[in-house]
Design a protein around this nucleic acid. Structure first.
Lengths: 210, 210
DNA sequence: TTAATAATCACCCAAACTTCGGTATAATTA
DNA sequence: TAATTATACCGAAGTTTGGGTGATTATTAA
């Protein structure tokens, strides 16, 4: 445990009490130091070149720019900065938005001393700290819907459509005529209630059919 | 901690030594019991109605049917069965295949007494046990590529394409002419080296451009 | 500050592909 | 046996794509 430098941490959190409590906890550690604590993203982003944080603890709900947009901007400026979202809610859509924006961890505001520091340690170790519920939410998001209305053949064809294949390519790959492929696709569209390939792909991804 | 019944666990693992070692560990717990241990998926699936497992510990590399296909089939028969993959490799593609097939956890064969039991506990608690590396792999898989060759406008349009919108809908949504939308899309195709919407969506998803 | 580059917008035509609305038969499964 | 699934064909209407051309506004580099 002989780190020459402490990891630089920035906290972005509008609730002053939580901000100070988190600062105290982080600074109490041998391996981390708070180089900046802000009540909004705008100020934090303006100070980024000076602070040079390796890790950012980012609230999602913030006055002005929200934490998701802030995450995007910070990652855009320096993609090696690791961002941990700090939130009260474990709301599904927000989680995925934050992850897409570039967050690598997800903890709740109720995190205690140990939880906060072990999340930081986990990030340094190259992991992705998150609560049981978030982990499960993320994993479940990969699962394919077992209640698909499509037949096996239709699912195969939808898969090929999602890979960007044309009618001709699909028919060649499955050794069926182009007209048959067309029929299957018509049936897929009718079951999914869509009328184009890209709509079918959107629906398939949303409903986890492939 | 007064559970009236122990959770029913099935182990599918072709290495007899590991299978027996895992069985001993699971059976040593107050909360779990091994109701079946098999060297391949075929036998395990045939015994499913009798074993009625709540949790399956599944090896990926197996003689005959592999663990991913086995996961699909078991989940298909009873989607409330939780499956934990057990593997030597933390290979990227296999992880995602297993998750899509319906796995909810991912541990390595080197797992010791504590790791194995805490993975089982984590599953019961509704979580998703996985190693740091896997967690990070899964999270990174959500991140949008910051090195996109597309402009902001092109990315917006690609996003709309991926939602299944037509040229007309895109032009209306962005208050531009249909011809302009077309020009942007042509430029997107040329940058991504594709020639259709669905191919563009496939590439966008693969390269994490949206 | 100018020059160059990138981004955004707009239009035309022809070819290619997709979608819609039908019809119909074998094979498989419940 | 009835229902479902997978196969196959036709033609008309609609949408997308490819190959051009050109203008206006940022943005960046010299």
């Amino acid at each position: 445990m002989s780190l020459p430098f402490k990891k630089r941490v920035v906290i972005i959190e509008d609730d002053q009490e939580i901000r100070e409590s988190f600062s105290l906890i982080v600074n109490s550690s041998q391996r981390f130091m708070v180089v900046g604590a802000y009540g909004n993203c705008e100020d934090a982003i303006a100070a980024l070149n000076r602070d040079k944080p390796e890790i950012v603890l980012m609230d999602i709900e913030l006055p002005g720019m929200n934490g998701i947009k802030g995450t995007q901007i910070i990652r855009d400026k320096n993609s090696s900065t690791e961002i941990i979202m700090v939130t009260v809610y474990e709301d599904s859509d927000l989680v995925f938005e934050a992850l897409k924006a570039g967050a690598s961890g997800y903890i709740t505001k109720s995190a205690n001393y140990t939880e906060l520091l072990s999340a930081l340690e986990e990030i340094v170790r190259g992991g992705a700290p998150m609560s049981s519920r978030i982990a499960r939410m993320v994993i479940d998001n990969y699962h394919i819907n077992p209640n698909s209305p499509l037949t096996k053949r239709e699912t195969t064809i939808l898969q090929l459509i999602s890979e960007g294949k044309t009618y001709t390519q699909i028919s060649e790959e499955l050794f069926i005529s182009k007209e048959t492929a067309k029929t299957h696709i018509k049936n897929i569209y009718s079951k999914l209630q869509v009328n184009s390939k890209s709509e079918a792909i959107a629906k398939a991804n949303h409903d986890k059919l492939i």
